[in-house]
Simulated scan of single mutants.
Amino acid sequence: MATRRTFIGGAGGIGAATILGHTAAESSAASAPAAAAVDTQTARDSLRAVNAAMRTNYAALKADLVKNLGPVVIVQNDAKGGTFTLVHKGKQYVEHPVAEDFELAKSIAHVPLGIYSTIAEYLSGKVPNVSNADRIDAHDLDMVAMKGPGTDAWTTPLQAFADKLATAKNNLAAADLPQELQNSCAKILGEALTFIADSIRARAFDIASFQDFARRVHPSIRINMQHAAAAQISGVQGLCRKWRAQIGEAAWADLYTVVLSIWTTSVLNQAEIIIRPMMNQKKVNTHLIDIPTAQLPSDPIGVALDNLARIVQDNIAAELVFVADTKVADALKGKQDLLSDEILKELGTPVSGAAFRSAGKAKCPVDHGVSI
């Protein structure tokens, strides 16, 4: 009895034989044995193997592309204003362009954070009646204040921090800082030492007393921030002008910039703000790439180039694979998951993936329109 399988097989054989100028009887395809049946697991594994093979090919293309990327500027944010690497024509040029005033100004501006980090575990887990009580998440406070105020174990590490502050204050005049910056640093250090001395003497502190200290030093912290910002702008702009002249206008017009940042600074990142207006404005929205990380990677150049290679090869893949659907092509070229719109439809969400993202996790949680 002829089955559907043997009928289709025979028809295929006849068609092939006719094209080749042979008769059906001369074709061995007509009498070929049926393929052996496979179990479900084997069949499914064969489907998975297709994706595995795709990923192998994709990785091979990416590995070759990494070697061909350029020009690229890679920014590693750090306490000294950043390490900047230019990758161009197979060579890497590394610079630390920001003046020391950046690091020193931020170092002293971080004093209140240093004190907070030392005493936070010993706070009360209850939100007190303070002016910004509605802005303090009660659960977050409860998790941070894990040890509570029932012990004075905080006095030893706090005094150790005070010793470092006192040394810095004694040496401040010899640090050769601009006078305004020196004065603001002196104010921050002096107020911090007073807060610590009072707290240790009383064997007690609370949110309200710490906030009073923080208010007193805030104007000085703003001065330090202004000096740090000026130092970084000057250094980064000067380096960009130098590299632009080095590689030429044509290459600079195609420049990619990859900024490796911590998530908490990945919106309005300082390096991104400075570099953006110096890039080709027709391409900057696609060529300035911020990669937020939980911790800066041990191989930042490798991570940056690996991610950029994915982006570049997907840019071309999008226009070749999804030529019939520009919306899906744009998703592949950007940060939107290809399934996002389909999932939103299935969930009955009446917005596109782009609108959902802008209203959700990609939006900075802080209202920067509030004046300070």
Rank of each mutant, 00 (worst) to 15 (best):
M1E: 04
M1W: 14
M1V: 12
A2R: 12
R4L: 15
G13F: 08
T18S: 08
L20D: 04
G21K: 07
H22F: 13
A25Q: 10
A29S: 04
A32K: 14
A36D: 05
V38P: 00
T42Q: 09
T42W: 08
T42L: 11
L47K: 11
L47N: 07
A49E: 13
V50Y: 15
N51W: 14
A53I: 05
M54V: 15
R55V: 10
R55G: 09
A60D: 07
K62E: 12
D64K: 12
K67C: 01
N68W: 08
L69F: 02
L69Y: 07
V72P: 04
V75D: 00
V75T: 10
G81E: 05
G81K: 04
G82E: 07
T83E: 05
L86P: 03
L86Q: 09
Y93P: 02
Y93R: 09
V94I: 13
V98M: 03
E103N: 06
L104V: 14
K106F: 11
S107Y: 09
P112D: 00
Y116F: 15
T118P: 02
T118I: 11
Y122T: 06
Y122D: 10
Y122V: 12
V127Y: 10
I136A: 03
A138F: 06
D140M: 13
A145V: 12
K147Q: 10
T156W: 08
T156Q: 12
A173H: 09
E180G: 14
S184W: 11
K187E: 14
F195D: 01
D198H: 14
R203W: 02
R203G: 14
F210I: 05
F213G: 01
H218I: 01
H218W: 08
R222Q: 13
N224C: 15
M225L: 11
Q226S: 13
Q226F: 03
A228N: 03
A231P: 05
G235T: 06
V236K: 05
A251T: 05
L255K: 06
L255F: 09
T257R: 01
L260I: 13
L268N: 13
I273H: 00
I274T: 09
M278F: 01
N280D: 06
P292W: 04
T293Y: 04
S298Q: 13
D299P: 04
P300F: 08
G302N: 01
A304F: 04
L308G: 00
Q313S: 08
D314F: 13
A317P: 07
V321D: 03
V323T: 05
V323M: 02
A324N: 15
D325Y: 07
V328M: 14
A329H: 10
A329D: 04
A329M: 10
D337M: 09
L339Q: 08
D341W: 06
E342D: 11
V366I: 15
D367L: 04
H368V: 12
